[in-house]
Design a protein around this nucleic acid. Sequence first.
DNA 1: TCGCACTGATTACGTCTGTAGTCAATAGCG
DNA 2: CGCTATTGACTACAGACGTAATCAGTGCGA
Lengths: 131, 131
Amino acid sequence: MKSSVSRDGVSEKISEAELVVMEALWEHSPQTANDVADRVAGARDWSVQTVKTLLSRLMAKEVIAADQDGRRFLYRPLIARDDYVASESGRLVNRLFGGRVSPLIAQFAQQDQLTAEDIAELEDILKGLKS
Amino acid sequence: MKSSVSRDGVSEKISEAELVVMEALWEHSPQTANDVADRVAGARDWSVQTVKTLLSRLMAKEVIAADQDGRRFLYRPLIARDDYVASESGRLVNRLFGGRVSPLIAQFAQQDQLTAEDIAELEDILKGLKS
DNA sequence: TCGCACTGATTACGTCTGTAGTCAATAGCG
DNA sequence: CGCTATTGACTACAGACGTAATCAGTGCGA
């Protein structure tokens, strides 16, 4: 029996730094390398070269693609943020909670990490599921 | 304003392979290096040396400790699994969901990744919180 | 037309990770 | 009392990661 959370979807491992670049592309795309660098500047103090290296590594991992536009490239994500997020969430649940989602929430509840808003939204979600 | 999930607690980054060793120690401790290797054998096909290397790296990161017992050592975790789990869950929520917990659950719900059991347990958790 | 600015490609390099082999000390056995 | 088995320490080494400098091609302005 497989764990209850499957559908890995995103196989290529995206590193922490690479993720910052992905976020910039998810936020808006397509973009040139310089656009990405500018957009990323708020989060990290990287040189343009660093961003370009990360872009080419992401290309090697086939999670983004580039279309030539004159003499530069326009980069765009090949995977949806939702898919990535689902995959990472699933990984966490599998690694630490035996694939069950509720213990994860129980954990947040136990740490008093649920805001009133969270609780209200959780109720809505449950209501939606029961309908 | 800081994000709503904080208390990082565990600062030293524990790698994937190291985590397998930690799980063995959380499961039972203290244990000798060989005990750990045996216990880990189910999950990974590692040589004893590999396990010992991981143990010493975990020592360097100060997340485990060892007490001498004759000519060998008895290893034990210095951090609680709950703390680690809380910290990793928090990291995920911060990285991918802007520090909010409910979008994480919404994500699982959207992917139909909540079992009937999960839903029942979530209801219990919410009931507990509202009391 | 010539050189410079811009842009992608290549190379660099230290650290961390995964995975182990080897060395050195020592305790128990024959 | 010397040898061997056990165990921790040290060394190794390739691949991933973070961060970037430098090289090379090319289109545009002087």
